[in-house]
Nucleic acid binder design. Structure first.
Ligand code: FES
Ligand code: FES
Lengths: 169, 169
DNA sequence: AATAAACTTGACTTTTTTAGTCAGGTATCT
DNA sequence: AGATACCTGACTAAAAAAGTCAAGTTTATT
């Protein structure tokens, strides 16, 4: 389970743009140089970001990219989802079935588990905006995340019949 | 960002074993059949699980695997970490540097961001034990996860985004 | 002791995904 | 016009994930 460089690069690039004055376009060439990311790769990434309406492009000489919305209206989650495959793609099995489409999901514990995990991650990443990150010069102060009670219902009658065997097609 | 099938299979397999009486070994052949997972692949996975002291092996006829510890002492996180590369491997860049080893980490926002994410995920997965999952016949009731404050800047009042207790009803 | 069930090991192959590249554009500013 | 910079889609190389294989070793049972 990893975040791809594509996702990380995208966040870095957007952060870079966000550090510039609101209306001055930033060229990919500049970002490439500053962040040490391949220009060609950036171009590919920015197509997704543009289509996802995270950035707007200004073509021509002295053109570049500009945030399409207010930094406080762009979340890390949005960016990451544009560039990563979804964390929660499918059932317990690889990819045989579409999301939420396993016909034995009701009796499947893994189903709930992975789905909860995906929602947790999305919730976290969606709770952080670009504005949050640029107004923060340094990260030292940044913390207040706390998981309160994250247990799976501990109190439940012990069941004795085996769960129906999970059949595979 | 995905959980690999290896990790999912491992959890499924362990759950399968946990559903059997405490001291009866379960053979991989049986798990393979019931869960629809390649026997050869399972063997590979179980090497990791054994080294990680999640299971013990009993060789010979009627042998198989048995949980090495009490189900309430084995967390999903432990299992997953044995089979997945760590979520938080490195810096903002691909893999040029070791964990926590970036020399500009102090001034890097991404550093904190991805690290927090990794801790969130690990915290979640570590909070769920095998016992939690087997005492639960069905998943419908399963929830009580709550993220208290899931943002980076506490003083900034913003819209309430924290994931509602995820209802799986 | 012989047999057979079942685990053990390490290497191997195949498939899929990630990361990065390329060529040949189009739009816009000066 | 010329330079700058985005646009598009396909392409390739490298790495990781998923799955396989062969040749064992260990132990229960007969
Ligand atoms: S969701 Fe289909 S088996 Fe778990
Ligand atoms: S640049 Fe090294 S951790 Fe971000």
């Amino acid at each position: 389970m990893q975040i791809s460089t594509k996702g990380k690069y995208a966040v870095r690039a957007i952060l870079n743009i966000a550090h510039h004055p609101k209306e001055t376009p930033v060229s990919l060439a500049a970002i490439s140089k500053e962040e040490g990311i391949s220009l060609l790769f950036l171009e590919q990434i920015f197509q997704s970001l543009r289509k996802g309406e995270i950035v707007r492009s200004l073509r021509g000489a002295h053109g570049g990219y500009v945030l399409a919305r207010d930094p406080s209206d762009i979340t890390i989650g949005e960016i990451v989802r544009l560039l990563e495959p979804p964390l929660y793609t499918s059932s317990c099995f690889s990819k045989h079935e579409a999301v939420d489409d396993c016909r034995i999901a009701d009796s499947c514990l893994g189903f709930v588990l992975w789905k909860q995990l995906a929602e947790l991650v999305d919730g976290f990443l969606d709770s952080i905006t670009i504005a949050d990150m640029v107004t923060q010069a340094r990260p030292e102060v940044v913390y207040s995340l706390r998981v309160k009670s994250n247990r799976m219902l501990p109190e439940k009658a012990r069941k004795e019949t085996s769960p129906e065997p999970l059949e595979v097609v």
